[in-house]
Design a protein around this nucleic acid. Structure first.
Lengths: 137, 137
DNA sequence: TTAGCTGTTATATACAACGTATAACAAGAA
DNA sequence: TTCTTGTTATACGTTGTATATAACAGCTAA
């Protein structure tokens, strides 16, 4: 998977990194048990500091997306273990300001929902091959 | 309208302020031509610095939500002038990471869309009386 | 005119977050 | 042993956030 960092973006580098890996998991480009590049390797590849990568990796781990495999290093966690029943509560807090803004900016509810559906469609493209037996660990 | 600031929140104060005013506009609690408290008054009311309020107000103005009326101070802009046809493009960039995260966290597309619908319902409650003739200016 | 309010700007300070840099550690692999 | 892994510590510079004091122009009302 190719990671693209925009140094001109207002979004912190470690957040951009984190978002792209999460998106990779959501689309199925990154599968459970798949290993991520080492912090030093990835930092070198995309031309940023090791600690910035480490910060992103650290958050991915603490939020359940990855875990440390003694042999492989950082690997993608099992999809079941990522799930969080209480997530929708945190999500609502993040979505609310976006919807309020959207209303003011002239978007209808249908406009907004269709935009979301489009993003789901886009992300689910890679999900066809996502069916998998639980890999050996 | 009551503004509530959470000093323990990780969200910057001027962003919290901005979000609540935008939400107020979306729900109809704040109507066009209605005046907002002065930067000094609001700062005093909620116990924060004048410049923090000014920063939030400044962004609201530059994003079209408010304008400066020589007599009244800061007032809510006309709803038509708030609209921005290109907004959905910026919106998509903000929504995408949330949807990717939601997929990983086990939410289905229906779960997500229903959550959005619920927020729309909640925000639109105050919209019944939002029908208005263009007020004098 | 004077006094008081408005938004706005300037300057300064303190703190936290971000990103970089160098270095070191324990643990496992070759 | 040598190399790589994640991890931690320390330090530095930059930027963003929030505060504080002060001043300005423009308008309102006494």
């Amino acid at each position: 998977m190719i990671i693209k960092i925009d140094l001109a973006s207002e979004i912190a580098i470690y957040i951009q990194l984190k978002n792209q890996i999460i998106e990779g998991i959501a689309t199925g480009q990154l599968r459970p048990d798949e290993q991520l590049p080492s912090v030093r390797q990835l930092a070198s590849d995309i031309g940023i500091n090791m600690h910035t990568v480490n910060k992103g990796y650290g958050q991915l781990k603490s939020e359940g997306y990855t875990l440390i495999h003694k042999r492989k290093g950082v690997i993608i966690n099992n999809l079941e273990d990522m799930k969080d029943p209480s997530y929708s509560e945190k999500l609502e807090i993040n979505i609310k300001p976006l919807i309020a803004e959207s209303i003011c900016k002239g978007l209808t509810e249908s406009d907004y929902l269709n935009l979301c559906k489009g993003i789901f469609k886009q992300l689910k493209k890679g999900e066809i091959n996502k069916s998998e037996l639980n890999p050996n660990r």
